[in-house]
């Protein structure tokens, strides 16, 4: 980038200077943060899996049974959680490992549908409306939230249970409204107040959960 260091470029684009404008001491301080933050996520990973490993295994088994019976995975979330939902849907449809392709849909993928429902009815109904149209009994609804409080997710999983779909919630903080009795069949909570750390551990959770599902679906049926 030598061309950007001439005085003219510096005048036009002062942000192109090679040295950051903060002191080296600030950089040194900042460089301590990544290991601390990573350790925080790792502690949460241990906390979640120590407390919930059995439930994760039984949830994976229930999802495998639903998928083996023809169910699809319908995933939803808001903001960063919407991208998490899209991420796991893509991993299921086009696995990075040896697993089989599994039918899955992200309920935020269709911007025409999301904005139509949001505009005509309410943003609170963007997922439940799609479930009524696309969902079938035996499907799996995966609701991802850092708070557990999103009205549109709570409405979606309530209706999904009524329609005899399997419901799985992934939440943070204290689980929020998803924690109430009867809202979801399986709930996993990453007990943190940091949205970033919650999302990092939630990603580990849904990766491992669905890797188990893929493994279950590849099992050769035994005589057991």
């Amino acid at each position: 980038m030598s061309s950007t260091n001439d005085p003219f470029s510096q005048l036009l684009y002062p942000m192109l200077r090679e040295q950051p404008s903060v002191d080296a001491s600030v950089i040194t301080q900042l460089s301590r943060a990544p290991l601390q933050k990573s350790a925080e996520s790792n502690a949460l990973r241990h906390q979640l899996f120590d407390a919930s490993a059995d439930q994760i295994v039984s949830c994976a088994r229930a999802i495998s049974t639903a998928v083996a019976g023809g169910g699809r995975v319908l995933a939803c979330g808001n903001g960063g959680s919407a991208t998490s939902a899209a991420d796991i849907v893509s991993e299921l449809l086009r696995p990075s490992g040896a697993g089989p392709a599994i039918g899955a849909l992200s309920l935020t993928a269709d911007i025409a549908v999301v904005t139509a429902i949001g505009n005509d009815v309410s943003y609170d109904d963007v997922f439940v409306r799609q479930l009524l149209a696309l969902g079938r009994s035996g499907d799996v609804v995966l609701a991802i939230s850092t708070s557990g409080n999103s009205e549109n997710l709570v409405r979606a999983v309530r209706e999904a249970r009524r329609l005899r779909m399997l419901t799985v919630g992934i939440a943070g903080h204290d689980g929020g409204r998803m924690r109430a009795d009867g809202v979801v069949d399986h709930l996993f909570i990453v007990p943190s107040t940091s949205v970033h750390r919650i999302q990092e551990v939630q990603t580990t959770l849904y990766h491992l959960l669905f890797e188990l599902v893929q493994q279950h679906l590849m099992e050769v049926p035994t005589c057991a």
Binding site: L208, L212, Q215
Partner: peptide, 13 residues
């Protein structure tokens, strides 16, 4: 399955 989860968490950490 439990061993798979344990290994998965350990690998990440």
């Amino acid at each position: 399955d439990l061993a798979f989860l344990r290994d998965g968490v350990a690998a990440r950490c």
